[in-house]
Simulated scan of single mutants.
Amino acid sequence: MTVARSFWGIGIVLLLWNLMGVAAFIMQYSADLNQLAKTDPYTARIFAAMPGWAWTAYAVAVGAGTLGAILLLLRKAAAVPLFLLSIIGVIVQFGYSFIHTDLLAVKGATAAIFPAVILIIAIFQWRYARTLTGRGLLH
């Protein structure tokens, strides 16, 4: 069964989006906190205090999303549970950021905008893959 051109466009955009997430994770996880503290002491403090389980959730979110996007482009239904795992990772990671830190008090409600966009895209890619699987386009 052939797929519409939009499938390839959406799939490539999702892969690039998830690869940007991987790059962000690598940059944040490996950041020189002493150097970062000179320009953004609050973020340096937050990164230093972030527990391993929150970093793991972040890694799972971007890793599962990236693998899901690759499998989507390969037309594999295994993309669906990977995208769901990515959603769970996003929720756990940002749950930590908003519940266990003073992020909203320090940065204000606008600090929630980009995390909300990330969650919306994560949900979109999961629902998109589920829809394609239901149509028999992913197997």
Rank of each mutant, 00 (worst) to 15 (best):
V3C: 03
I99F: 01
I113K: 04
S30P: 00
Q28I: 06
F7H: 06
L74I: 03
L73P: 10
V80F: 03
V80E: 04
R5Y: 13
A61G: 04
W17C: 00
G63A: 08
L119C: 04
S6T: 10
L72Q: 10
Y128P: 15
A112Q: 02
I70K: 06
A31L: 06
W8D: 10
V62D: 00
A111P: 02
N34H: 02
R45K: 09
I46N: 12
Y42R: 07
T131Y: 08
L82M: 14
A54R: 14
Y58K: 03
L119D: 01
N34T: 15
L137M: 14
A57G: 13
A111L: 14
A122M: 00
L72N: 09
W55F: 08
R130I: 08
A116H: 07
A31G: 04
W55G: 06
S30L: 12
I26G: 00
A48E: 11
G9P: 10
L19K: 02
L19R: 04
T56M: 14
G21C: 00
L71K: 09
T110A: 15
W126S: 10
S97K: 13
T2Q: 14
H139F: 05
H100C: 13
M20A: 12
A129D: 09
I113G: 01
W126I: 03
L103G: 09
L119P: 05
L85S: 03
K38M: 12
A79H: 02
Y42P: 14
A78E: 14
R135Q: 13
N18H: 00
I118G: 09
D102A: 01
R75L: 10
S97H: 09
A105K: 14
F124T: 13
I121M: 04
G108F: 11
I99V: 09
S97L: 15
